[in-house]
Simulated scan of single mutants.
Amino acid sequence: MSTLVLVHGFWHGSWCWSEVVPHVVAAGRLTVAVDLAGHGLHARRPRWFRAQPYNREAVSTEVSPVADVSLDDAAELLTSQIRRIGRGEPVTVVAHSAAGPVLTRTAEQTPELVAHAVYLSAYMPASGKSAAAYTRLPEAADDLVAPLLQGDPARTGALRLDFATADAAYRQRLHEAFYGDVDPVLAEAATGLLTPDGPIGIMLGTTALTREGWGSVRRTYIVCTRDMAIRPGVQATFISEADAAFPDNPTSVVALDASHSPFLSMPGELADIIIPLG
């Protein structure tokens, strides 16, 4: 079967798959986790994040060092990663959350490199629509991430979360948004690894989808039914729009009774889903 390439979402890094990878490898499936543009080893933290004393105003106003990262940049990086990993052969890509539009762009531009596009509670925007547009849907009204964002993204160039704050209530809301069903000790450890800025350009970019490009690639959507970051109603919208646009290549759908981060809360169950996808 094709190699599995795992791509994390905003604020995370390839580290978030560390509990899933052993299950997949034990089943005999080659797998590699990579860093999204502006994250992991490609992250650049704003000055306020480590500055002392804590500067609340800077949290809301400092321009992000990853403000110039666009959807084009992210897709170019992912394409180079999967080309290297697959040595030119197609791979199966599992994209979480905000990695979804990056996978979509990559599959549209180089469908020959993507054997299977798997969206794990991820943005899967329709042709010509940005991922950001879906955050304004009525179905997204009660998501828990939007109220946690700091500053104006148009000014900072990022979707920013404040991981430097000592506000216990804010940190608890972060856990509820991302790690509602994750062991609290593990959730706290994961929070300590998050980076504050997700490049807004990834969320604002759009991709024109074609039947010969993204529409030709097999796709699976893994719905997280207790997700408080990308609500299930929004996830259903992605699926219905894709199937309406490309009815000859319908989306396979799998449901997990999980929050936004099943790679931490139920890594074995998640591995069981993605291992057979080739």
Rank of each mutant, 00 (worst) to 15 (best):
S2W: 05
V5I: 03
G9Y: 00
G13W: 02
G13T: 02
V20W: 06
V25N: 06
A26V: 06
G28T: 11
R29N: 04
V32W: 01
V32R: 00
V34G: 01
H39M: 10
R45Q: 15
W48T: 04
F49V: 13
A51S: 15
Y54K: 14
Y54M: 13
E57W: 09
P65M: 07
S70T: 14
L71A: 15
T79S: 14
R83S: 09
R84H: 15
G88F: 07
E89I: 07
A95N: 08
H96I: 07
S97T: 01
G100C: 15
G100Q: 11
G100K: 04
P101F: 00
T106A: 14
T110M: 05
L113W: 02
L113T: 00
V114S: 01
A115I: 04
H116T: 04
A117S: 11
S121L: 05
A122L: 08
Y134N: 03
R136N: 12
E139N: 07
D142E: 13
L144R: 12
L144T: 10
P153E: 09
R160T: 11
F163R: 01
T165L: 12
Q172V: 12
H175F: 09
H175M: 11
P184G: 10
L186H: 05
A189Q: 15
T191Q: 14
G192A: 11
G192T: 15
L193S: 02
L193D: 07
L194C: 05
T195H: 07
G198T: 00
M203K: 01
L204I: 02
T207W: 00
A208C: 15
A208L: 15
V217G: 01
R219E: 06
T225R: 13
M228N: 15
A229W: 00
V234W: 06
Q235D: 01
A236Y: 07
S240M: 07
F246Y: 05
P247A: 08
D257N: 14
D257E: 15
A258I: 03
A258R: 02
H260W: 08
S261I: 04
S261L: 03
P262F: 05
L264F: 11
E269I: 11
A271C: 13
I273M: 10
P276D: 04
L277F: 04
